[in-house]
């Protein structure tokens, strides 16, 4: 029985996204920022979502929490979160509770998500009250334990305002807030992008340790292939509002299939290997016009594009076990 249960736990995805579309209302009409995305986030794994600015990666994770800000609007789809239900159809109060309780989010700029006028300790209490935590003392104790676990002087941090903390410390406070209500799914949206190399490495190390200790499901959203390659079990590559490739990160890096992923991997400045093997990717990142094209969003920059690519959009198909690619060159075999 317990073995069966365990099996179930490992196979049921923590988040199951189906047919998700988000549009932004502009004066040129509705622009699809996320288009018909299907995605399974495996429980207890680190999933990296990678894409350039404007690829729709942040919109996608905000939509997972049903927290897309105006002028964005979710037009279709469902987001089944394990233990919560469909985030897009449950009542608003349950959604609000789920954000923080089941789904923890760490933002890129933690200074923008912390209240500059209240001490960190007070904000912990605020969070407790808004989530109707009975024992606030216990919550503070938990906060202290977590902060100590994150390598900080807990008493000092709780008594500080956000401007008294360094960038790396604020980001750790952000992680503390994401975990304090025992969220099992943690989303880090560009959480280390603003940090320098050393703070980034130590924050990532902490994320890795906590992920293991608490059996978390971690979603890393970033534009840095290095971070994903170092941390993630699975990588999801987004371009122009669509998922163009996904699979185990080691294989995607060593054998990228989609021309965009190939270009991206080649374009990473590395500290190992021959520097002349790195080639810059041509063209400009996807912009609003790209979203409206009928063909493949990568068509303009693709070196192996066919006439077909301009006319119709490739759909994401499984090319191997656990591996999906949206490219005619890869999926067509006739």
């Amino acid at each position: 029985m317990s073995a069966e249960l365990k099996h179930k736990q490992t196979t049921a995805p923590a988040v199951q996204v189906r047919g998700l579309s988000v549009v932004y209302a502009t004066n040129q009409g509705d622009l699809p920022a996320v288009r018909q995305v299907d995605l399974d986030i495996e429980a207890r794994k680190i999933t990296g979502i990678i894409g350039e600015s404007g690829s729709g990666k942040s919109t996608l994770v905000m939509a997972m929490m049903n927290a897309v800000g105006k002028p964005g609007q979710i037009v279709s789809g469902s987001v089944e979160v394990l233990g919560v239900g469909d985030m897009l159809s449950i009542d608003r109060e349950r959604q609000r509770k789920a954000r923080g309780k089941e789904l923890g989010l760490v933002f890129q700029a933690a200074q923008n998500s912390l209240n500059p006028l209240r001490r960190i300790g007070h904000q912990v209490l605020d969070l407790g009250r808004s989530h109707e935590v009975k024992d606030l003392r216990d919550l503070l104790r938990k906060a202290k334990d977590l902060l100590a676990r994150l390598g900080m002087d807990a008493d000092r941090v709780l008594a500080s305002y956000q401007h008294e903390l360094s960038g790396g410390m604020r980001q750790r406070v952000g992680i503390m807030f994401a975990l304090i209500l025992d969220a099992k799914i943690v989303i880090l949206d560009e959480a280390t992008t603003a940090l320098d190399m050393l703070s980034q490495a130590s924050v990532l190390e902490i994320v890795r340790e906590l992920h293991k200790e608490r059996g978390l499901t971690t979603i890393l959203v970033t534009h840095d292939m290095g971070v994903v390659a170092d941390m993630a079990d699975r990588v999801v590559v987004m371009y122009g509002g669509e998922i163009v490739e996904e699979g185990p990160s080691e294989f995607v890096l060593s054998h990228p299939a989609h021309p965009y992923t190939q270009g991206l991997v080649r374009a990473i400045p590395r500290i190992s290997g021959d520097i002349d093997r790195a080639v810059p990717l041509q063209g400009a990142p996807a912009d609003l016009k790209t979203y409206l094209e009928p063909g493949c969003p990568f068509y303009q920059r693709c070196s192996v594009a066919m006439p077909k690519c301009q006319e119709s959009r490739p759909t994401s198909l499984a090319v191997a076990q656990d591996r999906k690619v949206a490219c005619f060159k890869v999926t067509d075999h006739d």
Binding site: V252, L253, G273
Partner: peptide
């Protein structure tokens, strides 16, 4: 040591350490 390792393309340096 703080430079992320590209799994699949690189191996971690043997003496890598993270400054806490």
């Amino acid at each position: 040591s703080a430079v992320p390792v590209l799994k699949g393309l690189e191996r971690m340096g043997a003496d890598r350490f993270i400054l806490a």
